[in-house]
Design a protein around this nucleic acid. Structure first.
Lengths: 126, 126
DNA sequence: TTATATTTGCAACTCAGTTGCATTAGTATT
DNA sequence: AATACTAATGCAACTGAGTTGCAAATATAA
Protein backbone atom coordinates (compact mmCIF):
# COMPACT_ATOMS: atom_id res chain seq x y z
CA UNK A 1 0.00 0.00 0.00
CA UNK A 2 2.76 2.41 0.92
CA UNK A 3 2.70 6.13 1.52
CA UNK A 4 -0.60 7.79 0.72
CA UNK A 5 -0.32 11.24 2.20
CA UNK A 6 2.56 13.68 2.31
CA UNK A 7 2.68 14.34 6.01
CA UNK A 8 5.05 16.22 8.24
CA UNK A 9 6.51 12.92 9.49
CA UNK A 10 7.35 11.69 6.02
CA UNK A 11 9.07 14.98 5.20
CA UNK A 12 11.11 14.99 8.40
CA UNK A 13 12.25 11.43 7.89
CA UNK A 14 13.22 11.95 4.26
CA UNK A 15 15.21 15.04 5.19
CA UNK A 16 17.37 12.95 7.48
CA UNK A 17 18.28 10.69 4.59
CA UNK A 18 19.01 13.66 2.36
CA UNK A 19 21.45 15.09 4.89
CA UNK A 20 23.89 12.22 4.66
CA UNK A 21 24.34 9.37 2.27
CA UNK A 22 25.23 6.64 4.74
CA UNK A 23 22.66 4.35 6.29
CA UNK A 24 20.90 5.30 9.53
CA UNK A 25 19.68 2.91 12.20
CA UNK A 26 16.06 3.01 13.30
CA UNK A 27 17.25 3.52 16.87
CA UNK A 28 19.25 6.60 15.86
CA UNK A 29 16.29 8.08 14.05
CA UNK A 30 13.97 7.48 16.99
CA UNK A 31 16.42 9.20 19.34
CA UNK A 32 17.33 12.02 17.01
CA UNK A 33 13.73 12.90 16.19
CA UNK A 34 12.30 12.26 19.64
CA UNK A 35 11.26 15.89 20.08
CA UNK A 36 9.41 15.98 16.78
CA UNK A 37 8.08 12.49 16.21
CA UNK A 38 6.80 9.63 18.25
CA UNK A 39 8.76 6.40 18.23
CA UNK A 40 5.82 4.49 16.80
CA UNK A 41 5.46 6.95 13.97
CA UNK A 42 9.11 6.68 13.05
CA UNK A 43 8.89 2.91 12.78
CA UNK A 44 5.65 3.06 10.83
CA UNK A 45 6.81 5.65 8.33
CA UNK A 46 10.09 3.80 7.77
CA UNK A 47 8.05 0.67 7.04
CA UNK A 48 6.00 2.46 4.44
CA UNK A 49 8.95 4.15 2.83
CA UNK A 50 10.43 0.71 2.41
CA UNK A 51 7.23 -0.64 0.85
CA UNK A 52 7.40 2.25 -1.56
CA UNK A 53 11.01 1.37 -2.35
CA UNK A 54 12.21 4.78 -1.28
CA UNK A 55 14.33 3.17 1.41
CA UNK A 56 15.66 -0.33 1.89
CA UNK A 57 16.37 -1.98 5.21
CA UNK A 58 18.82 -4.52 6.53
CA UNK A 59 20.20 -5.70 9.87
CA UNK A 60 23.41 -4.38 11.37
CA UNK A 61 25.85 -6.33 13.48
CA UNK A 62 23.62 -6.52 16.55
CA UNK A 63 20.54 -7.47 14.60
CA UNK A 64 19.26 -3.91 14.79
CA UNK A 65 17.46 -2.41 11.84
CA UNK A 66 19.12 0.04 9.48
CA UNK A 67 17.70 2.01 6.59
CA UNK A 68 19.30 3.58 3.55
CA UNK A 69 18.09 5.34 0.46
CA UNK A 70 17.42 3.18 -2.55
CA UNK A 71 19.33 4.07 -5.64
CA UNK A 72 19.29 1.57 -8.44
CA UNK A 73 17.48 -1.09 -6.51
CA UNK A 74 13.94 -0.15 -7.40
CA UNK A 75 14.02 -1.96 -10.72
CA UNK A 76 14.40 -5.65 -10.01
CA UNK A 77 12.53 -6.13 -6.77
CA UNK A 78 14.88 -3.84 -4.80
CA UNK A 79 16.01 -6.71 -2.58
CA UNK A 80 19.17 -4.93 -1.69
CA UNK A 81 21.62 -7.40 -3.07
CA UNK A 82 24.47 -5.03 -2.52
CA UNK A 83 26.63 -5.59 0.54
CA UNK A 84 26.72 -3.29 3.54
CA UNK A 85 29.80 -2.28 5.46
CA UNK A 86 29.77 -1.47 9.15
CA UNK A 87 32.78 0.14 10.77
CA UNK A 88 33.73 -1.59 14.01
CA UNK A 89 35.21 1.67 15.31
CA UNK A 90 32.72 4.43 14.58
CA UNK A 91 29.71 2.22 13.88
CA UNK A 92 28.90 3.91 10.58
CA UNK A 93 27.23 1.79 7.92
CA UNK A 94 27.54 2.29 4.16
CA UNK A 95 26.04 0.64 1.14
CA UNK A 96 28.77 -0.76 -1.09
CA UNK A 97 28.56 -0.65 -4.83
CA UNK A 98 31.13 -3.44 -5.12
CA UNK A 99 29.12 -6.55 -5.83
CA UNK A 100 29.56 -9.81 -4.00
CA UNK A 101 29.06 -12.78 -6.24
CA UNK A 102 26.84 -15.45 -4.72
CA UNK A 103 27.77 -18.83 -6.18
CA UNK A 104 25.15 -21.41 -7.12
CA UNK A 105 24.31 -23.53 -4.10
CA UNK A 106 23.61 -27.17 -4.93
CA UNK A 107 20.00 -28.30 -4.29
CA UNK A 108 18.91 -24.94 -2.99
CA UNK A 109 17.21 -21.93 -4.51
CA UNK A 110 18.64 -18.67 -3.23
CA UNK A 111 16.19 -15.78 -3.30
CA UNK A 112 17.76 -13.20 -1.04
CA UNK A 113 21.30 -12.59 0.04
CA UNK A 114 22.41 -10.46 2.94
CA UNK A 115 26.06 -9.55 3.13
CA UNK A 116 27.36 -7.55 6.05
CA UNK A 117 31.05 -6.77 6.11
CA UNK A 118 32.72 -5.42 9.21
CA UNK A 119 36.03 -3.71 9.64
CA UNK A 120 37.59 -0.27 9.54
CA UNK A 121 36.07 2.43 7.34
CA UNK A 122 38.07 4.94 5.32
CA UNK A 123 38.10 7.45 8.19
CA UNK A 124 38.95 5.05 10.99
CA UNK A 125 41.44 3.12 8.87
CA UNK A 126 44.75 4.52 10.11
CA UNK B 1 37.92 -17.88 29.85
CA UNK B 2 35.55 -20.48 28.49
CA UNK B 3 34.26 -23.73 29.93
CA UNK B 4 35.99 -24.82 33.10
CA UNK B 5 33.79 -27.57 34.45
CA UNK B 6 31.97 -30.41 32.77
CA UNK B 7 28.49 -29.83 34.07
CA UNK B 8 25.11 -31.31 33.30
CA UNK B 9 24.15 -28.20 31.33
CA UNK B 10 27.14 -28.41 29.04
CA UNK B 11 26.45 -32.05 28.33
CA UNK B 12 22.76 -31.47 27.59
CA UNK B 13 23.54 -28.61 25.23
CA UNK B 14 26.24 -30.48 23.36
CA UNK B 15 23.92 -33.47 22.92
CA UNK B 16 21.46 -31.26 21.07
CA UNK B 17 24.13 -30.30 18.58
CA UNK B 18 25.17 -33.92 18.16
CA UNK B 19 21.60 -34.95 17.28
CA UNK B 20 21.43 -32.92 14.12
CA UNK B 21 23.99 -31.18 12.02
CA UNK B 22 22.02 -28.05 11.13
CA UNK B 23 22.21 -24.87 13.17
CA UNK B 24 19.85 -24.31 16.11
CA UNK B 25 18.52 -20.97 17.29
CA UNK B 26 19.00 -19.92 20.90
CA UNK B 27 15.24 -19.49 21.19
CA UNK B 28 14.64 -23.08 20.10
CA UNK B 29 17.13 -24.40 22.61
CA UNK B 30 15.62 -22.37 25.44
CA UNK B 31 12.14 -23.72 24.62
CA UNK B 32 13.23 -27.28 23.97
CA UNK B 33 15.25 -27.57 27.16
CA UNK B 34 12.91 -25.55 29.36
CA UNK B 35 12.17 -28.52 31.61
CA UNK B 36 15.83 -29.27 32.20
CA UNK B 37 17.64 -25.96 32.04
CA UNK B 38 16.98 -22.38 32.93
CA UNK B 39 16.90 -19.84 30.10
CA UNK B 40 19.79 -17.91 31.61
CA UNK B 41 21.90 -21.02 31.80
CA UNK B 42 21.27 -21.87 28.16
CA UNK B 43 22.43 -18.43 27.04
CA UNK B 44 25.45 -18.52 29.32
CA UNK B 45 26.62 -21.97 28.31
CA UNK B 46 26.18 -21.14 24.61
CA UNK B 47 28.34 -18.08 25.14
CA UNK B 48 31.09 -20.10 26.70
CA UNK B 49 30.95 -22.85 24.11
CA UNK B 50 31.46 -20.14 21.54
CA UNK B 51 34.44 -18.71 23.41
CA UNK B 52 35.89 -22.20 23.43
CA UNK B 53 35.31 -22.41 19.67
CA UNK B 54 33.12 -25.48 20.07
CA UNK B 55 30.22 -23.56 18.55
CA UNK B 56 30.00 -20.48 16.39
CA UNK B 57 27.12 -18.03 16.32
CA UNK B 58 25.48 -15.80 13.75
CA UNK B 59 22.24 -13.91 13.26
CA UNK B 60 19.28 -15.34 11.36
CA UNK B 61 16.85 -13.40 9.25
CA UNK B 62 15.07 -11.75 12.18
CA UNK B 63 18.27 -10.84 13.95
CA UNK B 64 17.86 -13.77 16.32
CA UNK B 65 20.89 -15.70 17.42
CA UNK B 66 21.76 -19.11 15.97
CA UNK B 67 24.49 -21.54 16.91
CA UNK B 68 26.19 -24.33 15.00
CA UNK B 69 29.05 -26.69 15.63
CA UNK B 70 32.46 -25.54 14.52
CA UNK B 71 34.22 -27.80 12.11
CA UNK B 72 37.29 -26.42 10.45
CA UNK B 73 36.87 -22.93 11.80
CA UNK B 74 38.90 -23.31 14.97
CA UNK B 75 42.20 -22.79 13.24
CA UNK B 76 42.23 -19.25 11.88
CA UNK B 77 40.22 -17.30 14.40
CA UNK B 78 37.01 -19.25 13.74
CA UNK B 79 35.22 -16.13 12.56
CA UNK B 80 32.73 -18.17 10.62
CA UNK B 81 33.51 -16.88 7.18
CA UNK B 82 31.32 -19.51 5.61
CA UNK B 83 27.84 -18.46 4.53
CA UNK B 84 24.65 -19.63 6.19
CA UNK B 85 21.47 -20.60 4.42
CA UNK B 86 18.02 -20.13 5.94
CA UNK B 87 15.00 -21.73 4.32
CA UNK B 88 12.12 -19.30 4.00
CA UNK B 89 9.65 -22.17 4.18
CA UNK B 90 10.72 -24.41 7.05
CA UNK B 91 13.05 -21.96 8.76
CA UNK B 92 15.95 -24.42 8.94
CA UNK B 93 19.46 -22.98 8.84
CA UNK B 94 22.54 -24.73 7.49
CA UNK B 95 26.20 -23.88 7.27
CA UNK B 96 27.36 -23.92 3.67
CA UNK B 97 30.73 -25.18 2.65
CA UNK B 98 30.54 -23.29 -0.63
CA UNK B 99 32.68 -20.22 -0.12
CA UNK B 100 31.60 -16.70 -0.94
CA UNK B 101 34.44 -14.59 -2.20
CA UNK B 102 34.59 -11.15 -0.64
CA UNK B 103 36.25 -8.74 -3.04
CA UNK B 104 38.72 -6.09 -1.90
CA UNK B 105 36.84 -2.98 -0.84
CA UNK B 106 38.64 0.26 -1.68
CA UNK B 107 39.81 2.28 1.36
CA UNK B 108 38.36 -0.14 3.85
CA UNK B 109 39.76 -3.02 5.82
CA UNK B 110 37.35 -5.92 6.05
CA UNK B 111 37.79 -8.07 9.16
CA UNK B 112 34.57 -10.05 9.35
CA UNK B 113 32.02 -11.04 6.76
CA UNK B 114 28.54 -12.29 7.46
CA UNK B 115 26.67 -13.87 4.59
CA UNK B 116 23.10 -15.03 5.08
CA UNK B 117 21.36 -16.51 2.07
CA UNK B 118 17.63 -17.10 2.06
CA UNK B 119 15.51 -19.26 -0.17
CA UNK B 120 14.22 -22.79 -0.46
CA UNK B 121 16.19 -25.66 1.03
CA UNK B 122 16.62 -29.05 -0.57
CA UNK B 123 13.53 -30.45 1.17
CA UNK B 124 11.21 -27.50 0.58
CA UNK B 125 12.48 -26.94 -2.97
CA UNK B 126 9.72 -28.59 -5.04
C1' DT C 1 -16.47 23.38 4.29
C1' DT C 2 -17.64 18.97 5.28
C1' DA C 3 -17.08 14.08 5.16
C1' DT C 4 -13.97 10.21 5.13
C1' DA C 5 -10.12 7.62 5.84
C1' DT C 6 -5.36 7.74 6.88
C1' DT C 7 -1.83 9.14 10.31
C1' DT C 8 -0.37 10.17 14.64
C1' DG C 9 0.56 9.92 19.72
C1' DC C 10 0.13 7.58 23.76
C1' DA C 11 0.39 3.88 26.83
C1' DA C 12 0.80 -0.53 27.37
C1' DC C 13 2.64 -4.57 25.63
C1' DT C 14 5.95 -8.43 23.58
C1' DC C 15 9.85 -11.05 23.72
C1' DA C 16 14.92 -12.06 23.04
C1' DG C 17 18.49 -11.47 25.75
C1' DT C 18 20.86 -9.72 30.28
C1' DT C 19 22.01 -8.84 35.27
C1' DG C 20 22.42 -9.35 40.39
C1' DC C 21 22.40 -12.32 43.88
C1' DA C 22 21.79 -16.22 46.77
C1' DT C 23 22.16 -21.25 46.30
C1' DT C 24 24.08 -25.43 44.29
C1' DA C 25 27.52 -28.37 42.69
C1' DG C 26 32.08 -29.46 40.36
C1' DT C 27 37.00 -29.93 41.50
C1' DA C 28 41.23 -29.94 44.00
C1' DT C 29 43.27 -30.57 48.53
C1' DT C 30 43.84 -32.73 52.77
C1' DA D 1 35.54 -39.19 52.50
C1' DA D 2 35.24 -34.72 54.25
C1' DT D 3 36.58 -29.84 53.39
C1' DA D 4 37.24 -25.63 51.15
C1' DC D 5 37.09 -23.00 47.18
C1' DT D 6 35.13 -21.17 43.18
C1' DA D 7 32.52 -21.73 39.08
C1' DA D 8 27.91 -22.68 37.47
C1' DT D 9 22.99 -22.50 38.16
C1' DG D 10 18.18 -20.79 39.03
C1' DC D 11 15.27 -17.24 39.93
C1' DA D 12 13.20 -12.92 39.51
C1' DA D 13 13.49 -8.76 37.88
C1' DC D 14 15.17 -5.98 34.33
C1' DT D 15 16.49 -3.90 29.46
C1' DG D 16 15.49 -2.21 25.13
C1' DA D 17 14.05 -2.68 20.21
C1' DG D 18 10.11 -3.08 18.07
C1' DT D 19 4.73 -3.72 18.05
C1' DT D 20 -0.35 -3.13 18.96
C1' DG D 21 -4.94 -1.07 20.06
C1' DC D 22 -7.38 2.82 20.31
C1' DA D 23 -8.85 7.55 20.50
C1' DA D 24 -7.61 12.08 18.63
C1' DA D 25 -5.64 14.76 14.85
C1' DT D 26 -4.99 15.84 10.07
C1' DA D 27 -4.50 15.24 5.00
C1' DT D 28 -7.31 14.75 0.96
C1' DA D 29 -11.43 14.32 -1.95
C1' DA D 30 -16.14 15.79 -2.61
Amino acid sequence: MGILRKTKSVKILLEEFDKKSSAISAITLVERLASELNKTTVYRVLDKLEEDKVLHSFLGKNGHKWYAKCNGCSVSGHQDSHPHFQCSDCGKVDCLSTDVLIPKIPNRKVDVSQVLLQGKCEECYV
